[in-house]
Design a binder for these strands. Structure first.
Lengths: 194, 194
DNA sequence: ACAAACTTTGACTCTTGGGTCAAGATGTGA
DNA sequence: TCACATCTTGACCCAAGAGTCAAAGTTTGT
């Protein structure tokens, strides 16, 4: 049955994502993956043609899920509220579910162009979610930035690395509030410099 | 002669840092390193007892150099000026000299405690440079933050990932200015929210 | 109950990679 | 030039890892 197969594939991808995230592509053997799933290596080859294909699929699945969930957040509220909600949710997913995502997405420079392109596409879709809110905030005058691109990049970088230092909800909220400073929304701000 | 040996060791470490940064620890063999240096694998073992020792030394040397250079920056000027100079210099070093540092420092979770401790020490020393300036700015009232720790973490995360998107000097300055927003110094700021 | 389809296994091949080492090459100093 | 120390090599060992596959085990539909 197709559902059974789908579940199996999903279980493999989840485990693979975990392991590749923990130790990096080169640091994980397919036997490691198989061991954690309590099957043998040969079984993995029944579902995936190669290690490369497995890791690419793992990245793609994880990335798609993640963006899906961010896109599913309510669209109501001011840009400030919505951006804060996005940041919180992103950080929460990173910390609680995919703490190793940073290493997983940090793909070696010398990978085949096709795979790099697919990952780039994921990133673009993900970026668009944040970009839309930031641009709306700029139009409404709620946000202030030096330039949109570096702002989004900084947001993204900080969120990706969050699992390294953040553990609990207090940390998540603290980081989200800190990142709001990047769009000029802060506890007390003073016009100066630049 | 000791100097000759020092230079040799340095050349090896530089090359190793490059390669490990590009493809990660597991993705690089000692023959890869030897090849890029136009020597053979056996030669590396004359200087380093194991792959682990080599990569640890590479990380340590690169990290120490980097922090040394930041600490050598002039101490004159307002916190705003000094922080901006620090950010710019850090990003410049990252982009121009160590574009692969992020992967190099992103050490697998299951490494021996001793090595993790040494890397943590590097990070602490590095962090102290930025922390001092940020705290000075807070005391003088020039800076505003939600909390010091997440601010420093966000700064650091964004700087580490800079080489992924930033190429030229315009990009470096744009990112540095954007990051100044994190301490409440921006082009135009509005008091609101939190 | 039976056959067809699907899934898993474990043994196998072949290559790569970490690490060793004796022998040779290249200095260096007197 | 000779002796000594400092590198460098390349062949070698052994373990691990990617990928293969026939045979066995398990579902599923009828």
């Amino acid at each position: 049955m197709a559902r059974k197969r789908g579940e199996r594939v999903r279980a493999i991808l989840t485990t693979a994502a975990e392991l590749f995230g923990e130790r990096g592509y080169g640091g994980v053997s397919l036997e490691d993956v198989a061991d954690r799933l309590d099957v043998t290596k040969g079984s993995l080859y029944y579902y995936f043609a190669s290690k490369d294909e497995l890791v690419t699929a793992a990245i793609e699945t994880l990335g798609t899920d993640w963006t899906d969930r961010l896109e599913a957040l309510p669209v109501a509220g001011t840009p400030t509220e919505r951006l804060r909600a996005l940041l919180r949710e992103h950080i929460r997913i990173a910390v609680r579910e995919y703490p190793a995502a940073l290493r997983l997405f940090l793909v070696p420079d010398d990978w085949p162009e096709e795979q790099r392109a697919r990952i780039k596409a994921l990133r673009r879709r993900h970026d668009a979610v944040f970009r839309a809110v930031v641009e709306e905030g700029l139009r409404s005058g709620e946000f202030t930035v030096v330039a949109v691109d570096p702002t989004l990049q900084a947001l993204h970088a900080a969120m990706s690395q969050a699992p390294v230092w953040v553990r609990d909800d207090r940390g998540i909220d603290g980081l989200a509030d800190t990142l709001m400073m990047l769009v000029g929304v802060g506890p007390v701000s003073r016009g100066s410099g630049a």
